[in-house]
Nucleic acid binder design. Structure first.
Length: 605
RNA sequence: GGGGGCGUGGUGUAGCGGUUAACAUGCCGGCCUGUCAAGCCGGAGAUCGCGGGUUCAAAUCCCGUCGCUCCCGCCA
């Protein structure tokens, strides 16, 4: 080995030890006769001192070294002279007096700073030189954190008797409902593999295969548009258990989540333990989304029974026709604003509501003085008695801004979500606070207007809640699934369900979701057949590892915790993927291109 | 498919109709034996993403385009 020690481990106790270190020049300080080099590796930084008189050859080498050069240093550990220790460095009590320095490799001047964190850097530049970006301390820490998280999960599940089993990447379309990535088969002309959107089918078949407790750190592929929390390929903790009910899986998974946080990022705090459980319907009604960030308490509250009696015609008519009037209380804001400022804020919020589909956004402000009038365009429509009812219902205090939404449910949800996200951005929430919650009682199906049929809200193998099984025949829309989603700080970090292991129930699902039995058998016949050979009751969960690590790292997006992520356009601008195939390759695959005119092969820059 | 943001020396920014295109840092050279964001002195480095238009005059205004990004659709 070229190194006797890492650059992060030498201390006072090592004084006098002869050592060999190797790493990158993080920074060089040339004093003339004395040169200091901060040598960096992934474990830390150690200061190397080179004395012109004591080691003239080493000094000459150090003189020519530059940032990011790769050096091998031989010397001895010495306690730093009185008053020159650096408390900022773990190794700051000592330095290495170099006897010999070898340049293992030189480096061009890097295109961006590796030795200091400048905050926001152009992502295209970072991606083009990702191997350099990865040298930066934050990226090193993120990737290390990712490793530790996955290691922790493996150890935990191993301790719970789970087996890690690999499943194919070249497989067949899976029932998640996203667009598949296809891989043409050379041996079977005209046929295609689909990359798995998740190992969903395979893990269920592993249960039929008798393994009882399976997990996998599995790469998954979905050909959909990107977001900050979505990549076309991403990593799941995929997991399945036999002979369990919903509570068994949830309890184990909750314990895993808590232990990950405590074991991997002990500096983080959990908002609540046990994790709160929120019904899907309740989540939509109060937060406007099925993945609420419960670190802050802005909620939409139904005030139809009050607003329906006020004199504002819109509210009265909406309530009469069965629509709700919802109210969101924004504490304090109005009290701090002048009339002009308030009207501007209200106008901006209203525009936001319109973009979310609403026709408008009514508001009132609560007076700071007792017995004051409600202000705002619709304040005058509330009598004194109604005003008191409203303020009590909302728990409103002087200076609060009350926002009113009244429209079709979906629009009110969208507005609620948009408003919450807007205020969230202004609130500077604490990233060290992890607000996990479970969202449960999802509907088994969601109505698809476009295709006029039911769609599985999770996937077609999700078992309805036992008490709702009878609804499959009478009122499928009312049937709840056994699904559970694990949400943290507004991100869905995982989800799972108890699966259907009974072919009879499975066969009821297909026609409801517009699948003919013939088609179902063609695509999923192997599943149906497997269920006929003693499939055990089973259920499981899949976690988005990228999102989980992102939250643990406090990163703004999952690209920060993925070594080589893709851009929003699905490309890798370092390696230029995707790229064209040669005619030869295409011929072997029996593929002809039929490109739209404008797509004359854009080789990424 | 749609809406928004950004693009100026290597990097991060300023400039927003007439400037020698500014500042910091980095880079190159010199000085310096206890620095650690080292310091001091000197120097090089930008056709302002690209194309077109408006104008006597464009980094600046307009249109288009490319790249990155945020969001909606899509996707759990």
């Amino acid at each position: 080995m070229m190194k006797t020690h890492t650059c992060g481990e030498l201390r006072l106790r090592d004084a006098g030890t002869p050592v060999s270190l190797a790493g990158w020049v993080n920074r060089r300080r040339d004093q003339g006769g004395l040169i200091f080099i901060d040598l960096r590796d992934r474990w830390g930084i150690t200061q190397v001192v080179v004395d012109l008189e004591a080691a003239p050859t080493a000094h000459a080498v150090a003189d020519s070294a530059r940032n990011e050069y790769v050096l091998h240093v031989t010397g001895a550990v010495r306690v730093r002279p009185e008053g020159t220790a650096n408390p900022e460095l773990d190794t700051g009590d000592i330095d290495i007096v170099a006897d010999e320095i070898v340049i293992l490799n030189r480096s061009k001047t890097p295109p961006f700073y590796i030795n200091k964190d400048e905050g926001v850097l152009d992502e295209a530049l970072r991606m083009r030189h990702r191997y350099l970006d990865l040298r930066r301390e934050t990226m090193q820490q993120n990737i290390i954190l990712r490793h530790r998280t996955i290691k922790f999960i493996r150890d935990f599940l191993d301790g719970e008797d789970f087996l890690e089993v690999e499943t194919p990447i070249l497989f067949k379309t899976t029932p998640e409902g996203a667009r598949d990535f296809l891989v043409p088969s050379r041996l079977q002309p005209g046929l295609f593999y689909a990359l798995p959107q998740s190992p969903q089918q395979l893990k269920q078949l592993l249960m039929v295969g008798g393994f009882e407790r399976y997990f996998q750190i599995a790469r998954c592929f979905r050909d959909e548009d990107m977001r900050g929390d979505r990549q076309p390929e991403f990593t799941q903790l995929d997991l399945e258990m036999s002979f369990v009910e919903r509570e068994d899986v949830m309890a184990l998974m909750e314990r895993l989540a808590i232990e990950i946080v405590k074991g991997v990022t002990p500096e983080k705090r959990l908002l609540a333990e046990p994790f709160p459980r929120i019904g899907y319907r309740e989540a939509l009604e109060q937060y406007g989304t099925d993945r609420p960030d419960i670190r802050f308490d802005l909620r939409a509250i139904d005030v139809s029974h009050i607003a329906g009696r006020c004199a504002f015609p819109v509210f009265v008519e909406n309530v009469k026709s069965g629509k709700k009037v919802k109210c969101m209380r924004v504490p304090g804001v109005a009290g701090q604003l002048s009339g002009t400022q308030l009207r501007k804020v209200a106008r901006d919020l209203e525009n936001m509501a319109r973009r979310a589909g609403a026709k408008g956004l009514a508001y009132i402000t609560v007076p700071t003085e007792k017995d004051g009038e409600l202000r705002g365009p619709i304040g005058k429509f509330f009598s004194v008695e109604l005003k008191l009812d409203l303020l009590e219902q909302m728990g409103a205090e002087g200076g609060d801004l009350l926002l009113f939404m009244s429209d079709a449910d979906e629009i009110v949800y969208a507005v609620t979500d948009a408003l919450r996200n807007h205020f969230k951005a202004e609130m500077e929430l604490d990233d060290d606070l992890l607000a996990f919650c479970w969202v449960i009682d999802f509907p088994e199906f969601i109505w698809d207007e476009e295709h006029q049929r039911w769609d599985p809200s999770q996937h077609m193998f999700t078992m309805p809640l036992p008490e709702d099984l009878h609804l499959l025949d009478s009122d499928p829309g009312a049937a709840r699934g056994s699904q559970y989603d694990l949400v943290c700080n507004g991100y869905e970090v995982g989800g799972g369900s108890i699966r259907i292991h009974d072919r009879a129930i499975q066969e009821k699902i297909f026609p409801l979701i517009g699948q003919t039995m013939e088609h179902a058998i063609e695509e999923f016949g192997h599943m149906l057949e497997a269920f006929e050979y003693g499939a055990p009751p089973h259920g499981g969960m899949a976690w988005g590892i990228d999102r989980l690590v992102m939250l643990l790292a406090g990163s703004p997006n999952i690209r920060e915790v993925i070594a080589f992520p893709k851009t929003q356009g699905g490309t890798d601008i370092m390696a230029h993927a995707p790229s064209t195939a040669t005619d030869e390759q295409l011929r072997e695959l029996h593929i002809q291109l039929d490109l739209p005119e404008e797509a004359l092969v854009l080789e990424a820059d």
